[in-house]
């Protein structure tokens, strides 16, 4: 079933089409949600909530080519994840001296060999705001301006948080590589 057909049937309320939509995109969406959540169960709940919201608002989707449906659904998931992080950002304060150190970049050829599940774990180990800024900027392609609007922080704050996130990940990568030499 093509994306357009899928969308049309979901708009018509076809339960099978909705199940098909879930089957096609839930896995990728779960990986995305795991990048934004520290807990796997929270990530699964977030993924299902995002899929439900996508089915509800499927009427507002405009097909723009192959892959546009997943981009649209992933935007919904990212917005929901960021909204949750924004509300609770004052409940936790990060005291991390590693983030301020100047750590050398790990060699890319060694980073390629790191398992994806380990990469997800490294990202989810970071504090919520740092995690969100890194995901949004480095992986999902948001600008600092967009990040600052969604997280309700300043652009300078977004840039400094990204620097801390990079340092934190570099330290984790270095520790992993050292452990697996």
């Amino acid at each position: 079933m093509s994306e357009q057909e899928l969308v049309q049937k979901c708009c018509a309320g076809d339960v099978i089409a909705q199940g098909e939509l879930y089957t096609q995109y839930a896995g990728r969406l779960l990986a995305l949600c795991r990048r934004y959540c520290s807990d796997p169960d929270d990530a699964h709940d977030l993924m299902q909530d995002a899929m439900i919201k996508a089915v509800e608002k499927i009427h507002s989707f405009t097909y723009r080519g192959n892959g546009s449906l997943y981009s649209w659904i992933s935007r919904i998931a990212v917005n929901m994840a960021v909204s949750s992080i924004r509300k609770h950002r004052f409940l936790r304060i990060s005291l991390d001296s590693t983030a301020l150190k100047d750590i050398p970049d790990p060699p890319p050829e060694e980073v390629v060999d790191i398992p994806k599940e380990t990469m997800l774990e490294m990202i989810s180990n970071m504090p919520p705001v740092r995690r969100a800024v890194f995901n949004m900027y480095c992986i999902d392609g948001y600008s600092h301006k967009e990040i600052s609007e969604k997280l309700e922080i300043t652009e300078k704050g977004s840039a400094s948080t990204l620097a801390k996130a990079r340092n934190s990940l570099k330290q984790q990568i270095a520790d992993y590589l050292k452990k697996n030499e």
């Binding site: 990728r28 990048r35 990469m119 990568i173």
Partner: peptide
């Protein structure tokens, strides 16, 4: 760089 490696590895990853 290592960030691009992270991006390529994870943007289409399916759990």
């Amino acid at each position: 760089n290592w960030e691009e490696v992270f991006k390529e590895s994870l943007e289409d990853y399916s759990s």
